[in-house]
Amino acid sequence: MTTSFDWKLPRGTLIHGKWKQNRYRVERLLGEGANGKVFLVERQRTWYAMKISSDAVDLQSEVNVLQSIAKQRQAGRHEAYLIDVDDFRNSDGVDYPFYVMRYIRGMTLFDYLAKQGMDWFPVVGYSLLVKLAQLHSEQWTFGDLKVENVLVGDYGRAELVDYGGVTGFGKSVRQFTEIYDRGYWNAGSRTADAKYDLFSFAVLCIQIHESRRLAALTASLLPQNRAPEELLKLARVNPVLRTMEDWLSKALRGEFAHTQEAAKSWQQWQHKHSRHAPSAPVPRWMKGLFVASAALLATTIYWLLRAGL
């Protein structure tokens, strides 16, 4: 699964599809997945994301999943995710398979929340749950749900990226990351179902708010002592996570009947949270401005009264 390859594609490299003859120009590297590299490319003045792998079977297997999802969604109003599938011959003389998908403009989850503020966390979380609910309704588990695989666009719209772990319900999860994995925490199997993703989602919430403590916890726990209860104990330390303990507990213990229920429960938490959340204190410069404008008003009235007399 870690078949990284060392070559680079410099900016401006032309990629010529072997079977369909489409041409793409490489702009830059966007990121590295578990089984390939993703580049930002351009074709006829449109940006796309292109995933290139050195393992044809692995990549094709991912393409198959994307194609199945696309087929299921054809009737709907969803934009096409998968644009093109082809091979190209690299300068090293080897053919590499690639696929082209819609380019999603966005920031990583950590960057987004750092820039826009934690106020956006409940909205982003809800948006992500809706995405998962859709995937689950089509009988797919996302599998490798983690901070790195969530992109956030304008106004907290979450998008899932890297479909390498997407697995049909009932099969073994194709790709996962230990700390997000239900099996790692002795909380259930690695068989794909909706609850598997909800478990990872709960860990993701903890990761966002308490990444350092989570890292310390995983380093210190003996394998046989890993349990949902340990994650909940950690959650109680954090003021935001504490308010959502019920939700986290249900997700970590697999107690949500389906993802819609989890989303609904999330909304209820959002509702409560938005009312009880301590609003940020008024900054000092604003207080100063208020005093200054009040003084100005008083002066004006005094002056007006005098002038009027």
Partner: peptide
Amino acid sequence: SIEGLPPEKRSEVVRVID
């Protein structure tokens, strides 16, 4: 080789492998 197959056929073969 699987790499030598056109995309549609490759898709079928990989489905069987999976």
